Simulated scan of single mutants.
Amino acid sequence: MNTFSMKRVALFLFAGVLSLTVLQTAAAQDANQSHTVDVKVQSINDIIAPGDVTIDISPSNGDFTGTATTSDGYDVTSNAPGGKKVQVKVTNENNVAELNSLKILSAGTSAPGEASANDVTLVGDGASDGTQDLTTGFTGVDVDNLSVEFEATVSPDFDPTGNNAEVTVQYTLTGN
């Protein structure tokens, strides 16, 4: 055998041993590999108040009470693990003295998630009643267009040609 043939045989033997080594290493690897996927969600607590509401009172038979439900309701999004609730209060009391009462009625008011709505008196005897809980507690919600039903009562001496009894109601998402 000449030197050239011996080099060629040696080269083929070397290539064969190398390929077996690579194949054995690849075959010896673990077929079960894993990694961790970490999902992080930012805290979100958001409330959007409903649109304006007009309560028309048409006194007949001495009834000076009227009701109205929001046409576009309020929206709530929260992922707070400790729970949240919605609170309401009158923040603009320009004409509350003209109202005998202004209430939110639970029967026509929706609450987010597993919460329920409460009857709330916003104005009683012509004065604001302060901050009230509109809902009980809830967790993990993203819901839109929750209705709110209002009831207003005025006295017979309410001047229908004068200033309207207009108040501003503030909605707050607060801890449970």
Rank of each mutant, 00 (worst) to 15 (best):
P81C: 00
P160R: 07
D133W: 07
N92D: 09
L105K: 10
S34V: 08
S147C: 06
A68E: 00
A10D: 00
A165S: 05
V53G: 05
V88R: 03
V41M: 05
V86L: 07
D159S: 10
L99K: 06
V86C: 06
K89W: 08
D38N: 15
A165M: 00
S60F: 14
V169D: 01
A49S: 09
S147A: 07
F12G: 14
T131I: 14
A117M: 03
T153N: 10
F150E: 00
G137Q: 05
F12N: 10
V154K: 03
D157V: 11
G175K: 10
V17I: 08
S43H: 12
V39Y: 15
V96W: 08
T36H: 03
T21Y: 06
S43T: 13
V120F: 01
D125C: 02
D142A: 07
G113W: 06
T121R: 01
S78A: 10
F12V: 13
N61R: 13
I57A: 01
L134D: 04
N95I: 07
S78W: 06
N100M: 13
P59W: 12
A28M: 10
S128V: 04
V9F: 02
T54V: 15
L102R: 08
F4N: 06
V123D: 02
K84M: 14
K84A: 05
Q87H: 10
A111L: 02
V148W: 04
F4L: 04
S71E: 11
P160V: 08
D133M: 01
V86I: 10
T3S: 12
V90R: 06
T65W: 05
S78T: 10
V22M: 04
Q87F: 07
G175H: 12
F14K: 05
S155V: 06
E93I: 14
N145F: 01
T121I: 05
T153Q: 05
S155D: 13
F150K: 00
T3R: 11
N100W: 13
N45T: 03
I47A: 00
A115K: 04
D46W: 07
I48E: 12
D56F: 11
N95T: 15
D63T: 15
N79I: 01
V123Y: 01
L13E: 08
A165K: 01
N2G: 14
D52C: 05
D119P: 10
N100H: 13
V53A: 07
V37D: 12
S128Y: 09
G175T: 10
T174Y: 00
A107H: 07
V169I: 15
A80Y: 08
G66Y: 11
Y74T: 01
F64P: 13
V22L: 09
G113I: 02
V120M: 04
N145M: 01
